[in-house]
């Protein structure tokens, strides 16, 4: 998703102003000349300056157009010259949504089912067949469980499908 520089610049400036304001509200600490408010204020002001500079296009000459690898020898072509993927915008937010899914359900469903759903969905979204998604969903979660829960002793929740080992 490409946002025009003007919008990102203004967005950054607004964020910077909010940070500077939020920082200025922090109470000083007895015995410290520079309180906890100074550092956020400096950052906030810096962000405002950067935001304005970006919005008016300073430093734009250093940027290069986005490119993707398209051919076998690793040559790059401009991003907009490649045929688009169907539902690209929707698919892009799949990985973060799956991570949220993991965070909120793993304690109830357990590691193996949650991980299987994640793996299969990602595989499918990337254009994998049902067969490959199924194979991954069956193999990857137990393998990851073996490494993390057994060898590294990370407490992964058993949930509905406890692993026998």
């Amino acid at each position: 998703m490409h946002i025009p520089n003007r919008a990102t610049g203004i967005g950054l400036a607004v964020l910077g102003a909010a940070v500077a304001y939020g920082g200025s509200l922090l109470p000083p600490v007895p015995g410290q000349q520079v309180g906890p408010n100074v550092f956020p204020m400096v950052i906030g002001i810096g962000l405002v300056l950067c935001g304005i500079a970006i919005a008016i296009g300073i430093g734009k000459s250093f940027e290069e157009p986005e490119e993707v690898v398209a051919s076998e020898d690793g040559a790059h072509v401009p991003a907009d010259a490649v045929a688009p993927v169907p539902h690209a915008a929707l698919k892009t937010i799949v990985p973060p949504l799956l991570l949220l899914f993991y965070a909120f359900t793993v304690d109830h469903l357990g590691f193996i089912p949650t991980a299987a759903v994640m793996v299969a969905t990602t595989c499918f979204a990337l254009g994998g067949t049902w067969r490959s998604a199924l194979i991954l969903a069956l193999c990857a979660p137990p393998a990851v469980h073996l490494v993390f829960a057994k060898l590294l002793r990370v407490p992964l929740p058993p949930g509905l499908l406890p692993i026998p080992w």
């Binding site: 994640m118 793996v119 990602t122 490959s132 990857a140 979660p141 993390f148």
Partner: peptide, 19 residues
């Protein structure tokens, strides 16, 4: 294939950061 590698990476991101 990319669709065989990326799903495992998403899973590792979740478990690795949790750990």
């Amino acid at each position: 294939k990319r669709y065989m590698i990326m799903p495992v990476i998403v899973l590792l991101c979740a478990v690795g950061s949790f750990a």
